Simulated scan of single mutants.
Amino acid sequence: MTQSQKDPAALALATRQGLPDALRILLESYPRDSWENHSNFAGLVAFWLDRHVMFRRLTDTLRSDAEAAVDKRLDPQTHFSRLSRFGGMLVSQLHGHHQIEDAHYFPVLARREQTLDRGFKILDQDHHAMDGLLNRFTESANAVLQGTGEAGAFHSELLSFQSLLHRHLEDEEDLIVPVILKHGPDNLH
């Protein structure tokens, strides 16, 4: 019995270091470095991964801006404007992305690859955990924008959020992309 089977908390977003090997089985047949050359990559997979790239870039931009604000290399008004724009974009786009995955893609993909159903449940649990993280992120960003919080505190919150978001995105990609590459994107939209 693996550690994650003994202790389900080991699979929680805040504590796991990756998906268990049993849920990464398709990744062996469809390794990351082969994805772009696969005939089922263009279209849905490419679009979906582009969304993940956008989330990573937004968090990188927000982190760089917060660091510049803390170091007084970015004037407060510019920081407020960028934080409002990019923070709002991140929150709204992530919520929409997760809603589509939970309501549509996860159930369809879980039916296509039933041995990975547990993985889709883990990702769904991640989305619930991300709701709380997004709320904390929003509260911290709003405190900066309203003048009741500091860029340093927001930066700390953002680092925690970014780390967990990246863990989730990587695990999601490791589970979902191989399923779509194997079965194709037909009947997913």
Rank of each mutant, 00 (worst) to 15 (best):
L23G: 02
A151P: 00
E139R: 10
Q77D: 05
H97R: 01
A129P: 06
H189W: 13
M89W: 07
L13R: 05
M130I: 04
K182F: 13
H52M: 09
R24Q: 10
F86Q: 13
T2F: 01
R63N: 15
N37H: 13
A22V: 07
S4Y: 02
N40F: 12
S29A: 08
D65Q: 15
R167K: 12
H104Q: 07
D50S: 15
G132Q: 05
V179C: 10
F137A: 01
H104L: 12
L74S: 02
G18P: 08
D124W: 12
N37A: 15
A110F: 00
E172K: 07
D75P: 11
F41W: 14
H97F: 04
V70N: 12
F120V: 03
R85A: 07
V177G: 03
L109D: 11
S81H: 09
A69R: 05
L158E: 02
A22D: 11
K182N: 07
I100F: 12
G87V: 05
L181V: 03
A68Q: 13
S92G: 09
L62M: 09
N187L: 13
L49D: 04
A14F: 11
S81Q: 06
L26Y: 01
D60Q: 11
H166Q: 07
M1R: 07
R57H: 09
A141R: 01
N37C: 13
Q3I: 13
L74V: 06
G119H: 00
L27I: 00
N142K: 05
V45N: 12
L164P: 02
F41Q: 03
G152S: 08
Q99W: 04
A141D: 01
Q99P: 06
L133A: 09
D124F: 14
P107Q: 14
L164I: 04
D65H: 12
L13V: 04
H168M: 01
K182H: 10
L169Q: 06
E150R: 07
I176H: 00
D186K: 09
Q77I: 12
P31S: 03
D60H: 10
A14H: 00
A110V: 05
A141G: 09
N37E: 10
E28W: 15
F106G: 03
H38E: 13
Q99I: 11
L181S: 04
G147R: 03
R73H: 15
R118D: 11
D126S: 01
P8N: 04
F154S: 11
G132R: 11
D7T: 08
S156A: 12
Q3F: 15
I25G: 15
T15M: 06
W35V: 07
R57I: 13
L123E: 05
M1T: 06
E36D: 12
S160V: 13
H189Y: 15
F137V: 07
L83D: 10
G96S: 14
L188K: 13
Q146W: 02
F137D: 01
D126A: 00
R32P: 08
G87A: 02
R16N: 09
M1I: 10
L134K: 00
D21A: 14
F137L: 06
F161K: 06
Q114D: 13
G96D: 06
F120G: 06
A10F: 05
T115S: 14
